[in-house]
Amino acid sequence: MTVAVSAAPATTARGAGKPSRRRSLVWLGLTPFALYVVLFLAIPAVLAVGSGFFDSTGAFTFANLKAFADPNIQSDFFSSFWVSALTAIIGAILGAIICFALLGTKPDGFLRTIVDSASSVLAQFGGLMLAFAFIATIGTQGLITVWLSQTFGLTANVFNNFNNGGPLLYQIPGLVIPYLYFQVPLMVLTFMPAMEGLKATWGEANATLGGTRVTYWTRIAMPILAPAFFGSVILLFANSFSSYATAAALIDQGGIVPLDIKQQLTSETVVGVSNVAGVLALGMVVIMILLMTAYSALQRRASRWQR
């Protein structure tokens, strides 16, 4: 699970402390947190990514990177990609529509509190429990599955036999549905500030110049919102790409990269080189860094209009 990173808080250069003899003592105040971050963030991150470069005897090697040539691993990266891309695009569009519907409501009113809280719960907390909810909804005995077969006589519907591979929910394409239930809320959380940045005066200016609501959206609002929208799409992609709990509760084997990491850690067999979990971790981090760089670039562009 990831969280939306909104624009950086205002940074002003006030109160730059003068050097003093107590300076070193103050420095000491920063060490506990620094030590904690080094021990439990820096070292694990380096170990995770670095472990891919060592063979079973502990010698440095690039040979493990051959794992990326393995057709199973390639196809799982591909699955991760298309599930993430699909849920990011659909999630972003649906989320943007919800943000649009929420425009003009009081930001600290009752409705927004409910929507924001429900969005946070689903986007950041749901994971495993969303998987349970969907087992109860479109699993073999799920509410909708049973309803379809009883009310419409569809005993073999899309939910209990998809592509002749058993219940949809327990296959990779089935992940799209529960994933949307945390992608759409994440979009609402990340895109709402951009939507609220639309100034009423722009609408008035458009009307004064003879524009219609259509020209307002196509010529003003959409171009202004575009960087924020694509930034959110990237964030949603990253969120889906790195999420583990929902998939783990639904699918026992591998199929997407996070599940492969679990599989490689419990049984190192399939690929024939050592530390494949580390190699996969490296692959994920490289992709995440690319995504986050693109995200922060787009976010910088978007924040021009949010002042």
Partner: peptide, 23 residues
């Protein structure tokens, strides 16, 4: 500080655990 605090978003939990196991 801000950069450090948002790193865990860039490094997925499922990647970090690979490093947490030896720790």
């Amino acid at each position: 500080l801000e950069f450090v605090c948002i790193i865990p978003i860039t490094i997925p939990a499922v990647v970090l655990v690979v490093g947490f196991i030896p720790i």
